[in-house]
Amino acid sequence: MADGNRPDKVAFELVAPERVLASELVDMVVCPGADGDFGVLPEHSLLMSLLRPGVIEVYQGSQVTARIFVAGGFAEVNPQGCTVLAEEAMPVAELDAARARQRLQDAKDELGETKEELDRARCEREIAIAEAMLAASGAAAA
């Protein structure tokens, strides 16, 4: 089974529509999957997963070197690495609790006003994102 050049690192890529946010070799990535968090180590089996709004943790050794908030997205995992497509992403340290709270409020207000199915779904997603932001920023402060 050993093919001589077994990867001992995970090629982690975080891509946003407007640019590539991160591309590095790391030891482990923990992603907030739709069905629960999952860790990606080298030689992970092929997996495609939805991500819920939450925090991606990047490990070098046993240290967390980066904590990045994503507002949902997709992860594609193969033995060489892990690619995350996210429409919105930022380091947890840059999260602003006040702004997240404002966003939550706006989304709730809008949800109260709209009737249309698509708009409601969008508002509910906004609320989920804002709540996850709040939780993440709270965790960062604690």
């Binding site: 529509p17 089996s45 939805l50 997709f74």
Partner: peptide, 26 residues
Amino acid sequence: AVYEFEPDEESILKELLPRNLAVQIY
């Protein structure tokens, strides 16, 4: 056949397709 989907193909597609549309337009 070898990919594992989480939660399943359909749910991912449902999320992915509208995004794909936006990305293509972008």
